[in-house]
C-alpha cells in the first residue's frame, strides 16, 4: 500500500535545490518513511541541519525545522533536545559538517550520548560550493582542489563514530533504499546518540570529476564500492577489512543517555537541597 508523503512536505517550498541525480532526495524519502512507520508526532519532530546541500533538507519538510551554521547542527540540536526532551530531534549533516568544520561537535556528541539521531549525507565532496575536496573524498579521487587526485586518506565516519563511543552506528547508501529506511528507523528508535553514515551520489561534482558523471553510473558506483556486511542487527560488529565499504549496523548498544543521567542528577541535587 502506498502512503502519501506530501503531508510531510512544505509543497510551497518545492522545487528543492538539489541537482538531477542527487542522492539526497532518496535519503529524505527514507527518513519520511521511517518517521511515518514510527508514527512520530509531526509537531514534535525537529529536523536540524548544517550548511551545504544536505543543509537544504529542512526547508522542504513540514516539521519544526532549523537550518543552522556550518558544522554546528549537533550543538544546536543538543540545546533543543535538553530544553525539551519530548522532541524527536533529527540532525541532518553533510560530510563536511560532520567530519571537517564540525568534527569536534560530532565526536563529543558520540561520547555524550544524548538521544539524537544524526544522519550524514556523505557524498565525499563539497557540492554546494562547487566540488572541493572533503575529508571523506577517497584517496586518489579528484576534486576542484585536488585535480591530480587526493593525497589525503579519507575519514571513515563509521570508525570515527565507533572510536568516539557512539552507541548506535550504521552505514548505508542512498542506492540501497530499503536498507537506508530500515537503518534510519533503527537509529531513531535507539535511545541515545545514533549515527547513520549514508553514502550518497553527487553526479554533478564527484561524478564529473571522477568519470561517473551519469546519475545512473554514479548510483552503480555506490553499489559497486559498498557491500552489506551485516544484514541484521543480530550479527553486528566492527566493520570487516575489505576494499569495499561495508554497510549495516556496526554497533547497537543501549546505555543510559545523557538526558536520563541528567535527570538523575537533578533528582539527587533537589533531594540534597530539600535536606539542607
Amino acid at each position: 500500500m502506498s502512503e502519501d508523503y506530501r503531508r510531510f512536505l512544505r509543497l510551497n517550498q518545492l522545487p528543492h535545490v538539489w541537482c538531477p541525480g542527487c542522492g539526497n532526495g532518496m535519503i529524505v524519502k527514507s527518513l519520511l518513511e521511517a518517521i511515518n512507520e514510527l508514527r512520530l508526532d509531526q509537531d514534535r519532530v525537529v529536523v536540524v541541519s548544517g550548511i551545504g546541500c544536505s543543509g537544504r533538507t529542512p526547508f522542504v519538510l513540514d516539521f519544526n525545522t532549523m537550518h543552522t551554521t556550518h558544522g554546528r547542527a549537533i550543538a544546536f540540536a543538543t540545546g533543543i533536545k535538553l530544553a525539551n526532551p519530548e522532541l524527536h530531534v533529527i540532525v541532518v549533516m553533510g560530510d563536511g559538517d560532520a567530519s571537517a568544520i564540525g568534527g569536534n561537535h560530532f565526536i563529543h556528541a558520540c561520547r555524550r550520548n544524548l538521544d539524537l539521531t544524526a544522519l550524514v549525507f556523505n557524498n565525499g565532496i563539497y557540492g554546494l560550493t562547487g566540488g572541493q575536496l572533503a575529508p571523506t573524498t577517497p584517496m586518489g579521487k579528484r576534486s576542484t582542489t585536488s585535480l591530480g587526485g587526493s593525497i589525503e586518506p579519507a575519514f571513515d565516519l563509521v570508525r570515527l563514530a565507533l572510536g568516539a563511543g557512539a552507541a548506535f552506528v550504521a552505514r548505508t547508501t542512498s542506492f540501497d533504499h530499503k536498507q537506508c529506511t530500515s537503518l534510519i528507523k533503527r537509529a531513531i528508535s535507539h535511545h541515545g546518540f545514533g549515527v547513520v553514515d549514508v553514502l550518497t551520489s553527487c553526479p554533478t561534482y564527484f561524478g564529473r570529476m571522477n568519470d561517473v558523471a551519469e546519475p545512473y553510473d554514479m548510483v552503480h558506483y555506490l553499489r559497486d564500492t559498498s557491500a552489506p556486511a551485516h544484514d541484521s542487527a543480530c550479527d553486528h560488529g566492527p566493520p570487516p577489512d575489505t576494499s569495499l565499504l561495508p554497510t549495516g549496523i556496526f554497533r547497537d548498544e543501549e546505555r543510559p543517555d545523557y538526558a536520563v543521567l541528567y535527570r538523575q542528577k537533578i533528582a539527587a541535587a533537589t533531594s540534597e537541597r530539600r535536606a539542607s
Binding site: 551554521t69 550543538a75 540540536a77 543538543t78 540545546g79 533543543i80 535538553l82 530544553a83 561537535h105
Partner: peptide, 9 residues
C-alpha cells in the same frame, strides 16, 4: 549554538 537551540526548545 547550544543556547540558541535551547531557546528554540
Amino acid at each position: 549554538s547550544a543556547i540558541i537551540g535551547a531557546a528554540w526548545g
